[in-house]
Simulated scan of single mutants.
Amino acid sequence: MRIAILGGGNMGTTYAKAFVRSNIVKTGDLLIIEKHPEKRKSLREEGVADLKEEINESLSTYDILIVAVKPQDFKSLVPDLVKVLKPSQLIISIMAGITISTIQTLLKHDKIVRAMPNTPAQLGFGITAFTVCKDASLDQISIVDTLLETTGKAIFMKDEELLDAVTALSGSGPAYYYYFVKHMIEAGKQMGMEEPVAAMLVKQTMLGAFQIMSNSKDSLDDMIKAVASKGGTTEAALNSFEKSNVGQDIIEALKSAEKRAKELSRESA
């Protein structure tokens, strides 16, 4: 199998390294097309893949093409892509907001997969939801699943419209956790701690809580109750959250993210 990646940014590079590390593809069968000289120089030093500056006819010799450019940069690349694509090639897009039908129309190409990864993929702890064109075979779905799971976990979604919700939940999700951790650390500072001490307490607590969630069969409500003693400190904090309507605010915030994802989809059409 030969794989070409269009775009040598964070996610494109993440996939390239993951494919080689997982023995999915040999370095000589992996191509990254990256227009920026500085990035090409860095990638060349790492020796992850073959490198080219621009799209050319050699792209037609690859089985899978991963489009990892910014959505706003995609249309400018379409004329060159259309010239070299072959009907047998499978295209995997990780561009936020651009639908399968839009890509099919622009590229005049049927075999399209749309995926939404998140940044923990860089460490092998990502979660990527993906959906496929209606004519995709089970073999193709299996291949895509295998490729995406080199960076963490993958989940197949039958309904493409749900990828906007995926964007809101997991695509943008890491930033929400960083935001909450940031303010927990700030609370520690305001209570008299040095920032490194507060940061260690908060980050390790978050890691430990994740492990409990991952290994327990209890519901989240039960886990909360296990920490929140009647009349205790945890209950005081939770009561403040409830009084300030934090839970509903979180839900509304994620719905705002989903709404913006849908707007981006329409703008890219």
Results as ranks from 00 to 15, higher is better:
S268F: 08
S101M: 10
S22E: 07
L207R: 15
G9Q: 04
P79M: 00
I55C: 00
S58Q: 13
Q248I: 11
I251E: 00
T99L: 06
D139P: 04
V20L: 11
Y176R: 07
T105K: 06
E38D: 14
L77Q: 01
E267V: 08
V78I: 10
K153L: 12
I141K: 12
A68I: 03
T167G: 07
G12Q: 04
V82P: 01
M184E: 04
C133G: 05
L220D: 14
S214L: 15
M200V: 07
I103E: 00
E45P: 07
F125E: 14
V113M: 02
V144N: 01
T128Y: 02
R2V: 14
S219R: 15
M116P: 02
A4M: 06
A136T: 07
V113C: 03
I103N: 00
D159G: 12
S170I: 11
L138F: 14
P120G: 09
A187P: 02
F19S: 00
L163Q: 03
I94L: 03
S214Y: 14
K203F: 11
A261Q: 01
T146Y: 09
D29P: 01
A68H: 04
G126H: 03
E235Q: 15
V227D: 15
A68L: 02
Q211L: 11
E160D: 13
M157D: 10
E235V: 09
E53R: 10
P79T: 00
S219G: 10
A228P: 12
Q72W: 12
K108G: 09
K35P: 00
S58D: 10
A168R: 01
L207P: 02
L43H: 10
T14M: 01
E34K: 07
K217T: 08
S265N: 10
V20E: 03
T14R: 04
